[in-house]
Design a protein around this nucleic acid. Structure first.
Length: 598
RNA sequence: GGCCCGGUAGUUCAGUCGGUUUAGAAUGCCGCCCUGUCACGGCGGAGAUCAUGGGUUCAAGUCCCAUCCGGGUCGCCA
């Protein structure tokens, strides 16, 4: 019984033909002498009819035994449905297959949840039975889209002269950056590989090796805590090019994105993308990845509120901080309760509090009303464009806290007030990133991007004397407030690279121990080069309109970094550990699943 | 590591102030009936370690403590 058609592909053109289809029983409607089965394969659904009066008894009897998710093969004739029985909700709703032969290829246990779109089931159940979850059409679509995305990317880069080159999964552990996943080496007792956080160094060395244009769709690993958009292993589209300017890279990537959206979801993305420097992004949107699907910029009102009796604002301004606000149109009647919630909300991001001005019909309401004149409130209204009915939410603190808290509050208000068009795609390049950021925890400057990023030429003199003012030739691609890619022009001069290591607090010995092979390579004729990497999971997540990258990864980990289907990670045999010269100090874990299910 | 939310039939939920409940509903499942359904319909039935452990109480799904599990988030993520 060899399949001739896919379920979802059959149309009126096949009417009269004998077809053989295979798939899973999605729904069975048993009317006694007449049974309908919606048969599903990866292409979609088709209705199969079993008519007691018109078929042999054994076959009909078999049809009566069908249950959800049985795997069957059906031979039958395609028939046009009568006008009253056409189902416009189904792609194949014009036709049905009248079964003449039924083969039950496999029975199935009753699944723990419905195999259909839009289910509301605890994610742990979905992940445990991932093979059933993935059987749902919307998940199938996501995985198919992901395939399509990778395919378009490969075609684009191939056509533009790029080579896909694989790099090692077993690498040297490097300082800086995320925590490494370590892999013990059996043949080198006591020594460890690290799984790559990205192929960064290898792709640069491939430039030294003269490949000029490299790309790779590659798995990366970072042992950090998980989020809706962060998995310990994730996929990057990794790119590096020689003899190019920043402009060349941005243009090449815009072309790739344009083609990608056109060919995989049929959306036209206008190019070139908007550009914004990092300082502006932080100042205006309180984020290095602004969501431009709505406006609501942060506005500085320090000059209007300084020098008053209101100690909170004064103290902040005098110590070099600032008072900024966002304007929420038509929300002057925000419930007091909600304001209390928002105070807590900004505190998450380090703000000590939140103030507000309600320009309501009954007049101005504000916790600091008594400290300021009506004129001051009028001036603030003028400066911010606030009209009667509008709400200003105000945060006072040092710059980074104000920007972060208000930036997050802006997003919260954007969602709450329905200002975000769910179909909008707003691309943006954020450029001119700072080279360093200060780590309070480690009391030192850390590379904001990574230590191979080239500082702007005019800032090189400040690398050691004033790292905070150095800007880098680094850029991020942002889509709808999500960082989907980032990269930089690289340092290609060994001395400059050493200087940057020094600025990061690495001694020449440490630098040499960790990156010596790279520094060596750089002495043998390194071309100017640069590149970037995209987060493939995040990109597909947005294209598929999902809220979590778990929905576009076939077998993701849960928030505790566990695969609940295969139950990884797990303890291993003493023998394995002995071979690796490893002794485990962690207490034995009880089997987490011993008191659960079956 | 911190904060927030959650855990009750296979699934999704309800369960008030601790007591009239034998812990309900929907859906799924099982059986019988049903020839034009497409979320088919009708009748009947089975199905619960109320996450786990301890405590308070005459009495705990409900209150308290601890633990486990899940999700979101801050820190973290070059």
């Amino acid at each position: 019984m060899k399949r001739t058609h896919h379920c979802g592909d059959i149309r009126k053109t096949e009417v009269g033909q004998e077809v053989i289809v295979c798939g899973w029983v999605s729904r069975r409607r048993d009317h006694g002498g007449l049974i309908f089965v919606d048969l599903r394969d990866r292409s979609g659904y088709v209705q199969v009819v079993y008519d007691e009066a018109a078929m042999n008894e054994g076959t009909f009897h078999k049809a009566e035994s069908l249950r959800s998710e049985f795997v069957i093969g059906v031979r039958g004739k395609v028939r046009a449905r009568s006008e009253e029985t056409v189902n416009p909700k189904m792609e194949t709703g014009d036709i049905e297959i009248v079964c003449t032969e039924l083969r039950i290829l496999n029975k199935a246990k009753t699944p723990p949840f419905y195999i259909q779109d839009g289910i509301d089931v605890d994610e742990k159940v979905r992940l445990k039975y991932r093979y059933l979850d993935l059987r749902r059409p919307e998940m199938q679509k996501n995985i198919m889209l992901r395939h399509r995305v990778a395919k378009v990317m490969r075609d684009y880069f191939d056509r533009n002269g790029f080579l896909e080159i694989e790099t090692p999964m077993l690498c040297k552990s490097t300082p800086e950056g995320a925590r490494d996943f370590l892999v013990p080496s059996r043949v080198n007792p006591g020594q460890f590989y690290a799984l790559p956080q990205s192929p960064q160094i290898f792709k640069q060395i491939l430039q030294v090796a003269g490949f000029e244009k490299y790309f790779q769709i590659v798995r990366c690993f970072r042992d950090e805590d998980l989020r809706a958009d962060r998995q310990p292993e994730f996929t990057q589209l990794d790119i590096e090019m020689s003899f190019i300017s920043q402009e060349d890279i941005l243009t090449m990537m815009e072309g790739m994105i344009k083609e990608l959206f056109q060919k995989s979801i049929g959306v036209d993305v206008p190019t070139p993308f908007e550009r914004m420097d990092w300082d502006t992004a932080m100042d205006k949107y309180g984020s290095d990845k602004p969501d431009l699907r709505f406006d609501m910029p942060l506005m500085d009102i320090s000059e209007y509120v300084k020098g008053s009796e209101f100690k909170v604002f004064n103290a902040v301004i005098e110590s070099g901080g600032m008072v900024k606000c966002i304007k929420v149109d038509g929300y002057a009647d925000i419930p007091r309760r909600r304001l209390d919630d928002l105070v807590k909300f900004v505190q998450i991001y380090g703000a000590k509090g939140l103030a507000w001005i309600q320009y309501s019909e009954e007049g101005i309401k504000s916790p600091f009303k008594k400290f300021y004149s009506d004129e001051t409130f009028a001036k603030i209204a003028e400066a911010t464009g606030a009209k009667t009915g509008d709400l200003l939410l105000v945060v006072a603190d040092k710059r980074l806290v104000v920007d972060t808290a208000l930036g997050q509050l802006r997003l919260e208000m954007g969602k709450e007030r329905g200002l975000i068009d769910p179909d909008a795609l707003r691309f943006l390049w954020v450029v001119d990133f700072p080279m360093y950021e200060w780590s309070d925890e480690e009391k030192r400057w850390k590379a904001m991007h990574h230590p191979f990023t080239a500082p702007r030429d005019e800032d090189i003199e400040y690398l050691l004397s004033d790292p905070g003012r150095v800007k880098a030739n680094a850029y991020d691609m942002v889509l709808n407030g999500v960082e989907i890619g980032g990269g930089s022009l690289r340092i290609y001069n060994a001395e400059l690279q050493e200087k940057v290591f020094e600025s990061l607090g690495l001694t020449p010995e440490q630098a040499h121990q960790k990156f010596g092979f790279m520094m060596d390579a750089f002495q043998y004729g390194t071309p100017p080069h640069g590149g970037l990497a995209f987060g493939l999971d995040r990109l597909v997540m947005i294209m598929a309109k999902c809220d979590s990258i778990r929905d576009v990864i076939a077998f993701p980990k849960n928030q505790s970094a566990r695969d609940v289907m295969s139950e990884a990670p797990s303890e291993v045999d003493e023998k394995q550990l002995r071979e690796l010269s490893i002794r485990v100090s962690a207490p034995k874990k009880k089997d987490k699943n011993e008191n659960k299910d079956n």
